[in-house]
Design a protein around this nucleic acid. Sequence first.
DNA 1: CAGCCATGTGTGGTCAGACCACAAGGTATC
DNA 2: GATACCTTGTGGTCTGACCACACATGGCTG
Lengths: 229, 229
Amino acid sequence: MRTHELVLRQVEADLAAGRLRLGDRLPGERALAGQLGVSRPSVREAIRVLEAMGVVRTAVGSGPDAGAVIVAEPASPLTATLRLHLATSHLPMGDIVQTRVLLESWAVREAAGRAEPEELAAPRHLLDAMDDPELPRERFHLLDAEFHVALAALAGNVLVATIMASLRDAIHGYVVAAAADLPDWNATVDMLRQQHRAVLAAVASGEGERAAALVADHIEGFYRTARLA
Amino acid sequence: MRTHELVLRQVEADLAAGRLRLGDRLPGERALAGQLGVSRPSVREAIRVLEAMGVVRTAVGSGPDAGAVIVAEPASPLTATLRLHLATSHLPMGDIVQTRVLLESWAVREAAGRAEPEELAAPRHLLDAMDDPELPRERFHLLDAEFHVALAALAGNVLVATIMASLRDAIHGYVVAAAADLPDWNATVDMLRQQHRAVLAAVASGEGERAAALVADHIEGFYRTARLA
DNA sequence: CAGCCATGTGTGGTCAGACCACAAGGTATC
DNA sequence: GATACCTTGTGGTCTGACCACACATGGCTG
């Protein structure tokens, strides 16, 4: 067992036992090293891994926000991991698109049956913001991603929403690059806006199957148009 | 930008550009530090992160297997991340089970339509191995996990199979613990065996919907019996 | 000559100690 | 009373050293 893994194991045990909770601060690197009888570099390596997994956030300086704080950000590590493996070309874009379709279809079908009307306000505001004709493309894509994540969140499953957000983030760069080559951006945007509205309306009226079919068409259609999959 | 992030960015760029490929070795820590003009601890922190993301595997000693080698293991980092966030209780077990049901139902439905008969040999052999009445419980659980992953792999989507494997691994400890408390282990195992066979048979005969329903019942039933969700 | 064993060499793993940049909070000054 | 300064504690980085390990090489031994 390498030394930094020992530190990791200790922190994980503290988390599982409730000795460390969300918002708590880890002891300082020097203190932790002393407590566990290891050197500071080993502690630092462990903290880097925790940081990469979205379990802690580090900040320099003093005060309540400084140091290594326990957070819960499972999305960012998933994104980074997917992006890296996408870079190595061992994760086909087609599989990612297919997974998105599968997760989002399920999410809207589920959401149609359980989402309260007031929960629909968040995605609706995003759509309103996307109606702005002056919106830069980059901003449109970001709002688009947010809308899909908000939609997935309606299903009430943290894991699915997290995976969705990660998938969308990981391919964001590819989407922006591909969209730049589209022959008629304005027409594409109008179509996307209509499809978004249609999906949300189906969810609002409780038509789960219809919402699922619409969102699947929407996603597959875009990637086909952008020649990404 | 912290120093180790600079190293990470450099490696990612090399991966994306094809200068680093699967199986290649990173320069030694000292050499890499020299090339990038940073210190060895910074390089090490970056390598720890890459390792945590399943992009490299490190080994000491000499020879072709030593050093930091590029690998593609997206499953292990996902597993570790899920496990850690499960430990912080910010990822409900119910959501994981629900996600498994959703992914596996889709996978078997897909597999029923496309899997070649010879592809079914792998999961079938796992089921044969699980028929051994002398099998220790721990071993049974491992084979069970392998079977579900093999099933998911039949759908031909690397990402879905990877997520499935990670989910199963992340909760493996909880499953083993819960199964130890079951009132009648032998009856449970018999039921699981029958359900597995039924699912595989439905896939083999191309009955996608039936397979999906069976696998959903199988998973939900087990977690209900084990009082995990 | 064939096999074994000691040694060399390069690798990651670990450590100690030092210094820097930064941010908060107390303190002295105006 | 407000402001500027300084103390203090934090992570960030570097240097240099030593250890454990595993393969490669060579010589030694049978």
